[in-house]
Design a protein around this nucleic acid. Sequence first.
DNA 1: ACGACTGTATTAGTGTTATCATACACTAGG
DNA 2: CCTAGTGTATGATAACACTAATACAGTCGT
Lengths: 131, 131
Amino acid sequence: MAIFTINPHSGVPVYRQIMDQVRYQLAAGTLAPGQQLPSIRELAHTLAVNPATIAKAYSELEHDGVIELQRGRGAFIHAHPPAMPRDQRRQRLRTLAERMAVEARQTGADDAEICAALDQALIHLNRRRPS
Amino acid sequence: MAIFTINPHSGVPVYRQIMDQVRYQLAAGTLAPGQQLPSIRELAHTLAVNPATIAKAYSELEHDGVIELQRGRGAFIHAHPPAMPRDQRRQRLRTLAERMAVEARQTGADDAEICAALDQALIHLNRRRPS
DNA sequence: ACGACTGTATTAGTGTTATCATACACTAGG
DNA sequence: CCTAGTGTATGATAACACTAATACAGTCGT
């Protein structure tokens, strides 16, 4: 199985699918800081998409501090994770939590059910992590 | 203060800002099932946007089962919340939780911090709820 | 120095989205 | 009935998103 898989008919943009998978695998530990990623052209060939599409995904990830691009060398998971300042992190978490809370409530779930879902997701992520 | 407020320069579409606020206020209890919303034209005038923009927001919300549109009468919060089937709800919660878990991990937060953020968000929502 | 690999930049084509304008159809009250 | 309110439907236009094509520039091993 390849590192990444793409579904061109899912409606979600290819470049975003790439970004999501890098983020997910980094969170899950399948990708580790410093590790080299497939080159733009190589990945483009594997997934049968235009190199510019991969370049866009990588470029955005670099802008977000997730990966590091080195001209002539390749793409790498950022060696030193950004380590967001405490205040900013708090604000970010608050935003994420509110979004999830509101959307989860739409399903009719109660607090316990919502928290349980998050616990499960975290446990699932931790599966592959030495931490 | 008006029921809704809009920021035309935020980059997020106006119709989506409307949708988000209806959903949020419903989750928070500021809007209650059965309650009447501002008419399309009235809200359009208040926010200084085209009625079709409000119509789109309302139409999408109706499609999602959040509100009810009655020609010649007005727009109302759906009296009986949709109550998603258990399986579908579980799947939806799983998706939401995974997204939050992955994005929260990006900030460098640990499990406890992430769960605490969600707890806070739920508590904050419950503030205005009789439930 | 060369060649084969890396990322970068610019431009363009295509489709979708967001907003607006205008005309239509239903409902309720006088 | 008729009027003033409601939502509905259609089409136009501008902006944006996504993908692609092509040419450029740095790195590294031979």
